[in-house]
């Protein structure tokens, strides 16, 4: 094609983004690396800033908290991302049909994604999971059991619940966009070929992933 840009023009057009992203993300990283080598107690400016080499790293590596944090992070990531993927595909399949009010249903499912983290935290802390006046207490008294201690023993579970609630809509968006980009002809031909729902899904999924 003649209207294709040549290589030089292409590079020129990507330059602004590369420069902006490099300055915005790489500069703070360099500052962080420099800061990691000094001892600086921010709330005690009178102590000054002293160069201490790698001792900050050693402090972290020998502390027991560090390994607990790494383990928790791995656990949260693994569980919440798996749940998000599974729920996202299920919701995506459900919302990929055409029925009255489908746009309202889609908006409802996607809405948690557009809520600020802080607001989501307040809603869940005070109205949903609170053990003395939330829905937690309501259902517990309905079933005659003590309310679940979401903020003490099960705090990890609470974090996972909130991440899944907030991020599943994002997965739904991606899955839905993938489904909608598959042309009607392919779906019809699969139907004619006698593909059932599961085979149809598998095929669409393989295509979406490709």
């Amino acid at each position: 094609m003649n209207n294709q840009l040549n290589r030089r023009q292409s590079r020129l057009l990507t330059l602004p983004a590369i420069v902006v992203v490099a300055v915005i993300t790489q500069a703070p990283i360099l500052v962080t690396l420099a800061l990691s080598l000094v001892q600086w107690i921010v709330v005690r400016p009178d102590l000054g800033v002293t160069f201490v080499g790698l001792s900050n790293y050693i402090d972290i590596l020998v502390s027991h908290d560090f390994y607990a944090v790494v383990l928790n992070t791995a656990l949260i990531t693994l569980v919440s991302r798996s749940a998000c993927t599974i729920l996202g595909i299920l919701f995506g399949l459900m919302l990929n049909q055409d029925f009255p009010g489908v746009n309202i249903v889609r908006t409802l499912v996607l809405s948690p994604f557009f809520v600020m983290d802080a607001v989501a935290g307040i809603i869940w802390r005070t109205m949903m999971l609170n053990s003395s006046f939330g829905f937690n207490e309501y259902f517990a008294s309905l079933l005659g059991i003590p309310p679940v201690d979401f903020f003490g023993v099960h705090s990890l579970l609470t974090i996972i619940i909130l991440i899944v609630w907030q991020w599943t809509p994002f997965f739904v968006l991606i899955v839905l966009a993938g489904f909608q980009s598959i042309s009607v002809e392919i779906v019809d031909s699969a139907r004619v070929d006698g593909a059932g729902s599961f085979r149809w899904f598998r095929r669409r999924f393989a295509e979406t992933a490709a």
């Binding site: 249903v105 889609r106 499912v109 809603i123 109205m127 609630w165």
Partner: peptide, 22 residues
């Protein structure tokens, strides 16, 4: 089909319930 539509509505309302309740 009716069942699937009802399921989608129920699931969506439950998912957005914290916001609707707010």
């Amino acid at each position: 089909r009716r069942f699937r539509i009802a399921l989608a509505w129920i699931a969506a309302v439950l998912w957005a319930f914290p916001l609707l309740y707010m």
